[in-house]
Simulated scan of single mutants.
Amino acid sequence: MHNDLLCAVVARPVHRWAAFFRERWLPQLRAGGVNLLTLPVFIEDPYRPEGALRRTLRMIEAAHRLAAGNSDAVALCSDGAQVDGVHAEDRIALVLALESAPGVGEDVELLETLFRLDVRIASLAHFGRAALADGSGEDRTGGRLTRAGVAALAEMERIGMLFDVSHLGAAGVEHVLELASRPVIATHSSARALLDHHRNLTDEQIHGIAAGGGIVCVNFFAPYLHEHDHSIDRLIDHIEHVAGVAGVEHVGLGPDFIKEVLADTTPPCCEHAFVEGVPADAYLPGLEGPAGLPLVTEALQRRGWPEDDIVAVLGENVRRLLRTELGWPAALATA
């Protein structure tokens, strides 16, 4: 439910967008058994705030072009029925998401504009302060959703856009859970009980997401799993913890394959990239990119997980949520 590969695609010349995806990413997705992929539209700091909307639109256009240029292998989906149909054709279903919404700002009506362009999931903030909410890096401020953020949540629920709480500040998550009338999702968040980091969710938050019918998709970013032991066992610890709190039917996978994206976007001449003082390309060995995803299945099998539960976590839980919520206006959503 999270792979920033659009950042790598859009860094290429326009005429290479579809071909680059086919050459660099499609083989990895096939090797990893991926048949559902959320494409976040992430706007880097140099584009904020003045160029955020233009950058947002350009990345959305890149998604549409890579889908059109690889229509034998992938399809951009606007609802859960389309996701299921693409799966039945042995193609990869792509879903567009906003990772924070700097291009929207306080102009909440633009969410419907972006919905028309097939954006179906959105979060309101990244690490810092934004027009709609505070990101988790601002937790000390205790900021909840702004008035525009409250309006954004209501608008997303009305049109059928899934609300993503990943990156949202702790008070913001609590605010969303107070107000939400439809299920929400955490596309890439792990368990704070196992590592006390502001990007992780508390047990109370995890339980609240599950109680509303939502799903927590566990992040693979190694520094959010353990301070020193960057192994797949620590990832499985987080998956098992979330399952224990939320129930296995409310768990999914939200890999953050930063190492692969950085390799595609950062010239060798540049300084090493960091996220809040942590090397941004820190990764779990073997899980540098989507080709390593079968290792997660094997690790769950070693822990003795039943096959049905493994299949649920690998994607069936998310597919169930998308069938009932993705792209359906509030008046038409099914229970």
Results as ranks from 00 to 15, higher is better:
N35W: 08
N35K: 13
N35I: 10
L37P: 13
L37G: 11
T38N: 15
T38Y: 11
T38V: 15
T38C: 15
T38A: 15
T38R: 15
L39Y: 09
L39R: 14
P40G: 11
P40T: 13
P40C: 09
V41Q: 07
V41N: 13
V41E: 14
V41T: 14
V41H: 10
F42P: 00
F42V: 03
I43N: 11
I43Y: 06
E44D: 13
E44G: 03
E44P: 05
E44W: 02
D45V: 12
D45Q: 03
D45F: 01
D45E: 04
P46C: 03
P46W: 02
P46G: 05
P46K: 03
Y47N: 04
R48Y: 00
R48M: 03
E50Q: 11
E50H: 10
G51I: 07
G51V: 08
G51A: 11
G51K: 05
G51E: 12
G51R: 09
G51S: 09
G51T: 08
G51H: 07
A52Y: 14
A52H: 13
L53E: 08
R55T: 08
R55S: 05
T56C: 07
T56Q: 09
T56R: 03
L57C: 10
L57F: 09
L57V: 13
R58F: 10
R58C: 04
M59W: 08
I60Q: 11
E61D: 12
E61V: 01
E61M: 01
A62E: 04
A62R: 06
A62F: 02
A63G: 12
A63M: 08
A63E: 10
A63S: 08
H64Y: 08
H64C: 09
H64G: 10
R65K: 12
R65M: 11
R65S: 14
R65F: 02
L66W: 03
L66G: 06
A67P: 05
A68T: 14
A68L: 14
A68Q: 15
N70S: 02
N70H: 03
N70M: 03
S71T: 13
D72A: 13
D72Y: 06
D72M: 08
A73C: 11
A73M: 08
V74Q: 09
V74G: 11
A75V: 07
A75F: 06
A75N: 08
A75Y: 02
L76V: 03
L76Y: 09
L76T: 02
C77W: 04
C77I: 05
S78P: 05
S78L: 10
D79C: 14
D79G: 12
G80C: 01
A81Y: 02
A81K: 12
A81P: 05
A81R: 14
A81T: 06
Q82I: 01
D84S: 12
D84M: 09
D84W: 05
G85Y: 04
G85P: 02
G85A: 01
V86A: 01
H87L: 06
H87Y: 00
H87A: 09
H87G: 00
A88M: 02
A88R: 02
